[in-house]
Amino acid sequence: MKEINIRKIGVILRPSTPELKESYYRLEKVFQKYNIEVLIDSISGGMIGIMGMEFDILCQNSDILVTLGGDGTLISTVRRSFKYDIPILGVYAGNLGFLADVQLDELDDFVEKLSIGNYRVDERAILEARFTQNANEIKRYAFNDIVITRHSVSNMIHVETLVDSKAFNTYHGDGVIVSTPTGSTAYNLSAGGPVLFPLTNVFALTPICPHSLTQRPVVLPGEFSIEMKTPMEKALVIIDGQDKHELDEGQSIHIKLASSKVRLIHKNEFNYFDVLKEKLGWGA
């Protein structure tokens, strides 16, 4: 992986958390110590009372993005910045996450390593979804998952699924989760889906509370594409738990892995299995 020449960073803070102001100034001081200019997006800046920069302009003027918060902040930033192909570093404020692995207290040491190229960049798959809304084609990206679920809590949903345009399965139940390897430890895991190593180029289909016990999670190769539709009722499409869209009866959503990857900056010693053991209590 080609080394990134880091002269400017763009900072995004966890929303609705003005108490991060002091943490932001600590972060800014660390990066400036290594002659790296610090920019901040306008929403984050407004939250802590400083002038910021509109997000798209921030992406165009930054060598990397730095999120300060948790995994949710990083996931939102990934989706918003994906078209700019810009690497992202997650600094966590609170508990260790699956994605943000640098804490504020160790930031000085890490930025020193960052300034001399002592870090690694992991490439992770992201889902691309296309569907039609009000006669317009909508494209959305999901770093964790896309959930197709029932529009009304009183009804079961029927989700017809095609793989590479060939009939595959019809899911009967509360819905289906389409998960990336990164998202496999989120809703997918709660629904009984498999844990996928985050750097693999695959995705999982996991039924939610299926009507039949024969319905089981399936892992598909990344080169496959799927089409999902609900011929008998409306459906909700929920992207990364953050965006919600409505599908009409019989309307399709097309999902595949995007041709480009998300680039996350990590410490060289970052070990995904150590995170799994700590977060899930494995081996306890």
Rank of each mutant, 00 (worst) to 15 (best):
I4M: 05
S16V: 00
S16F: 15
K21F: 14
R26T: 15
E28H: 04
E28N: 00
V30S: 07
F31P: 01
F31Y: 15
K33R: 13
N35E: 05
I36E: 14
E37I: 11
V38L: 02
I40T: 06
S42K: 02
S42H: 14
G46S: 12
G46A: 06
I48F: 11
G49Y: 14
I50Y: 09
I50R: 09
G52H: 03
M53A: 03
I57A: 10
C59H: 03
Q60N: 11
L65Q: 07
T67V: 02
V78C: 12
F82M: 03
D85C: 05
D85M: 05
L89Y: 10
L89S: 05
G90P: 06
A93F: 07
A93Y: 12
F98K: 11
A100P: 02
D101C: 02
D105N: 00
D105C: 04
D108G: 14
L114Y: 06
I116C: 09
N118T: 13
V121C: 09
D122N: 06
D122Q: 04
D122A: 01
E123N: 15
R124C: 00
A125L: 02
A125D: 07
R130A: 09
R130H: 08
N134E: 15
K139H: 07
K139P: 03
K139T: 15
K139V: 15
Y141R: 13
N144G: 00
I146R: 10
V147E: 08
T149I: 01
H151Q: 01
S154C: 09
V159K: 12
E160L: 04
L162T: 02
A167L: 13
Y171G: 11
G175C: 10
I177M: 06
V178R: 11
V178D: 03
S179Y: 02
G183A: 11
L189V: 13
V195D: 02
L196M: 01
P198T: 08
V202S: 04
L205S: 05
I208W: 11
I208H: 11
C209K: 15
P210D: 12
L213V: 12
T214I: 11
R216I: 06
R216D: 07
V219K: 07
L220S: 03
M228I: 10
M228Y: 10
K229R: 06
K229M: 10
K229P: 05
T230V: 09
T230Y: 00
T230D: 07
P231K: 01
M232A: 13
E233A: 04
A235N: 06
A235S: 13
L236S: 12
V237C: 09
I239M: 00
D243R: 07
L247P: 03
D248G: 07
E249Y: 00
S252W: 01
A258S: 15
A258W: 06
V262S: 06
E269D: 10
N271R: 15
K277I: 12
W282Y: 08
G283F: 10
